[in-house]
Amino acid sequence: MNKLISIIMTLVLGVVTLVTVPAYAEEKVVRIGFPGATTSRPQSGLGWGYVQAKHLFDEEFKKDGWTIDYNYIAAAGPGVNEGLANNSLDFGFHGDLPVLAARSNGLKIKALGAVRGGTSHLLVPTNSHIKTIKDLKGKRVGVSVGTWTHALLLKVLQDNGMTIKDLKVINTSGTAFETSLATGDIEAGFGSLSLIRRGVAREIWSTVGKHVRYQNTNTFVVREEFLRKHPDIVKRLVKVFVKGFYQASLNKNETLKFNTRTGTALADLIEENAGQSIKYLTSPKLDGQVTKQYKDSLALFKENGLIRRNFDPEAELYDRSYLDAALKELKLENHWPDYDSNGNPIKK
């Protein structure tokens, strides 16, 4: 019996140590996770690119000894979620599906701002007979499950009176997706313009020039525990984030040129972002465009069984106070308009 008690005690002690040690080993590091599957170089575009290139973070935090750790997560949004869940990340970026799936399953995060403007192309091999989305019925389609393109597929299928059950879904992403498309293991899937440029694939549909609801609208999220412990750091980080986005919002041509540092060609960037104002692309506001898209997505995901618990993002997810404070402090309250669900500026 004594032996049993000592075994139990050892187990309990072990668990307690495991749980408490990370709390003591805390350092002054802000760890951010970017979904890195789509960028060929570990560098960010748009606002975050400016934060990195202009050393805006160091400018703000140097005197307190805080450093920033940029992590590019190959597993994209779902990988960022795991990082936030196991405390290896404090902040992250997500498209609608990963952030809503995480919150729905109880991951304690708050959305502080928006990061807009992701595009994608529905590709088929060059020699494929598939011409329209309706032709996808019964076909093997490569999907990066849990990312925003997964959500995008649901949306375009819904438009065509289909559901994901009409397809054979193969979970694949990155280079595996490209190889499978080339070998014919998959017959279609969302991918980047570079595959068309290389002659591997042909597009049957793309988000370019379409309604904003098809575009990727990321949110910038923080772990609630970090927010509770360091509200001041969060406030200042959001300020840095707004500064970067402000710089990116000044000149579209300059910003697109700057974005080539992520490894995408300028011609591609110009084509992808055609017809969209740089103000819209860089607006960090959680406005009507974001909330409507997320609300519709929640209903769509619930219908498709991707999330099991519905929730009110206004109550459980969005926290605009930090962004509002930063905009006020930088006197940028009127720099970006609020956008409606169609992506049009609302005149005050």
Partner: peptide, 15 residues
Amino acid sequence: GEGIGNVMIIARRLF
């Protein structure tokens, strides 16, 4: 495309 291992992978991606 299907199978119990695949169910787990999908579930991991959807948190």
